[in-house]
Write a protein that binds this DNA or RNA. Structure first.
Lengths: 219, 219
DNA sequence: AACGACTTGCCATGTTTATGGCATGACCGG
DNA sequence: CCGGTCATGCCATAAACATGGCAAGTCGTT
């Protein structure tokens, strides 16, 4: 594993130093540079092409959020927000802009190091209080259809899902049977199971129910 | 601050014990109970009304994901997933179903304790590798697979969509006809139009195609 | 070894679909 | 006013489907 090169964007000298220490204390990270302003950070990113940029939000010459887009456009660097701004607006807009993680500044050095490692590994470290805004979105979009719970609960078997896919693509019993190399009569039996599990009585209803429950994906 | 009461749902006795130790080692948490199956966990949640439930995904009698809805419906407990299932599908569906956090089982006891505290405090602890799936959604801006566009492009009429909805809910021609107060024979004519427009030959295929094209919504 | 599940196979019967063609009235844009 | 689309209606038929019951072999779990 090669050494990862990290850049820092924060206007507070004390915090820059703090982050610098955290980064350089780790043998597998080098500091590619640190900048107090977005303007200088642009330079840094373009010239040094770091692997990861730690970004604050409140900068003298603008918001760190606006800087994210630049980074993503000009390099392949990952972006980890480390800031004290924990409001919904900032969190969501930063992540929408392409940030790969969002840590609050009260995070311990250990958490920050973990976060850096996770980001470089393709993960997305997000402080719990920030993540809750994400969930609001996700859950808000989907108004919670809680199923009335079939008594005969419904995990379809692989075979059954396979059949539903064929039906969704328009196959008849006979065609599906040929596709799976089984008897059309067996297809009928699988269909019985599917109908029982989904509590339905036709292929149209079954396909719909399966899609709704996420047991049948579209491609 | 009163003591928080926590319940555990996990089929592995060793893990139950592990989590029990973590929870009870902390003076501000009590163990409200632990269950190896969804069935027993339902009981637990209803009777003890814990403040937080730690839930695994792979249970003998179903997926922990399906259990989330029950918890949310029957109590005000928060739900923290602690599982080794880190795949996109599971993560997203769990969080959509209402989970308040998602930690992978390789998390250290300290991380789990932090996660429990954060969840009870209204936060949403999410392991970085799981959170990356959330960001995909947010940043992906819904990539919207572009359709190859049928030559006989297909805006279904209101009537046709109406019919498809009834089919998706399992109605036969006759039933749909009664529901719409038209002749079953007319239903057949609408079906012909639908099939032509969607280029399909069965209700199953039609429902699937319509859902995929966003012309048929689920509810 | 026994139990449950998934998968496979068959029979039989009544119902429903899929698809062709043909026709009327309403309505809208050119 | 004419052409097109929409919604409505009817006839007919071969094919496919929905559903019941029955059974054997392979699993993994108990």
């Amino acid at each position: 594993m090669t050494i990862s090169r990290i850049a820092i964007l924060d206007d507070d000298p004390a915090i820059r130093e703090h982050l610098t220490e955290i980064v350089t204390s780790c043998p597998e990270y080098d500091l590619a540079g640190s900048a107090p302003t977005i303007a200088r950070a642009r330079d840094l990113v373009v010239r040094k092409q770091p692997d990861l940029v730690l970004v604050d939000v409140g900068l003298p010459d603008g918001s760190g959020v606006d800087f994210i887009g630049f980074v993503k456009q000009q390099s392949r660097a990952r972006v980890l927000m480390i800031t004290s701004f924990g409001d919904r607006e900032t969190v969501v807009s930063a992540l929408e802009a392409g940030a790969d993680g969002y840590l609050l500044k009260d995070s311990s050095p250990a958490v920050i190091l973990d976060g850096i490692a996770a980001t470089l590994a393709g993960g997305a470290p997000i402080s719990p209080s920030a993540a809750s805004y994400l969930l609001e979105r996700l859950q808000g979009d989907v108004p919670q259809r809680a199923q009335p719970d079939n008594p005969d609960a419904a995990p379809l078997t692989a075979r059954e899902v396979e059949l539903l896919q064929l039906f969704a693509r328009g196959m008849s019993y006979k065609e599906a049977a040929r596709a799976l190399d089984i008897s059309p009569l067996t297809v009928g039996n699988h269909v019985k199971s599917i109908y029982r599990k989904l509590a339905v009585h036709s292929r149209g209803e079954a396909v719909f129910a399966a899609v709704r429950q996420g047991q049948l994906k579209m491609g």
